[in-house]
């Protein structure tokens, strides 16, 4: 089976919460993959996971409808089992040598990631040291990757489409938009008048009156992802005021016309806030 070249890169395919102790079928660039935990789901932190083509090479059953035994996914049809490295065993053919397409898989940052087995590409880290995790979620969008990405790397739409985070449509001409590129990255820095925000949210984010909202992101393409820094500055002094949000969004193409967003939301936090939030609201 020929896999598309984009599969060389690590892609998030599920949030950690979405993968229990039974296999799950995911689609990545049209390829159906069975993802499974090779050991019981840990209460905290990353576990060990495996991923193989969802189609059993014996008679075509969907392996994601099977179960996991001794770290292998077991086919629900004839009981053949498949290890994370792609080697297979058949109860009725103990001397047989069988093999399926396997994928590299790991659990990190609250998500399950897969790529083509054996490719030497770095894992896409994003720096959130000193930040408090606010949320992480997956959202499916029925549109091609390019169209979805376009929306998330320009701010002109925020005036009409967004509720609070963005710029006032009637003052978009005041928004500074700088683009800096390297061969591997595109950075876009936007700064302009914050669109009107309800009083309660202004108090939540604690930004100064007449603040300028800054939305500063860098997009990378191996895989496709953007990390956004969002904060406010005093338009006169240029000094930062209020909160600082850092969001990472990964764009995973499910099919040519379907894209999954994996959103990781963080906020800069003092130790007091981190401890209070952990005690009251932690989801991990």
């Amino acid at each position: 089976m020929t896999l598309r070249p984009e599969l060389d890169f690590w892609h998030p395919v599920l949030t950690s919460e979405e993968l229990g102790d039974t296999p799950e079928k995911v689609r990545l660039l049209g390829t159906e993959v069975s993802v499974f935990r090779t050991a019981k789901k840990p209460l905290r932190g990353g576990g060990t996971v495996g991923a193989v083509l969802d189609r059993c090479p014996h008679r075509g059953a969907s392996l994601s409808k099977g179960h996991v035994r001794e770290g292998c996914v077991v086919c629900p049809y004839h009981g053949w089992s498949w290890a994370p490295d792609g080697t297979g065993k058949s109860p009725g053919n103990p001397d047989g040598r069988f093999r399926t397409q396997a994928f590299d898989a790991l659990e990190s940052d609250g998500a399950i990631w897969i790529k083509r087995a054996g490719t030497a590409v770095p894992f896409p880290r994003f720096d959130v040291a000193g930040f408090l995790e606010i949320a992480r979620f997956r959202r499916r969008v029925n549109a091609p990757l390019e169209v979805v990405l376009d929306n998330f790397i320009e701010v002109e739409h925020t005036g009409n489409v967004h509720y609070v985070l963005g710029y006032d449509t009637h003052r978009l001409d005041e928004v500074i938009c700088k683009v800096e590129t390297t061969p591997e990255t595109v950075r876009v820095y936007n700064q302009g008048p914050q669109k009107p925000m309800p009083w309660a949210l202004r108090k939540l984010f604690r930004y100064p009156p007449n603040a300028h909202f800054v939305d500063d992101w860098t997009t990378r393409f191996a895989p496709v992802s953007s990390v956004y820094d969002q904060y406010w500055i005093d338009r006169l002094t240029g000094e930062r005021g209020g909160d600082f949000l850092r969001n990472a969004v990964f764009f995973t193409p499910v099919e040519d016309d379907v894209t999954d967003l994996f959103v990781f939301v963080f906020a800069e936090a003092t130790a007091w806030v981190a401890s209070a939030s952990t005690a009251c609201c932690s989801s991990r």
Partner: peptide
């Protein structure tokens, strides 16, 4: 950050993040 503000930061920001993403998805 003090008082109610510290307790509301996480749930309100999470809610707001989802709200904005939903608005983007609806438009796309």
């Amino acid at each position: 950050r003090v008082g109610l503000n510290s307790l509301l930061l996480k749930p309100l920001t999470a809610w707001l993040g989802r709200l904005e993403i939903e608005a983007d998805v609806k438009m796309i």
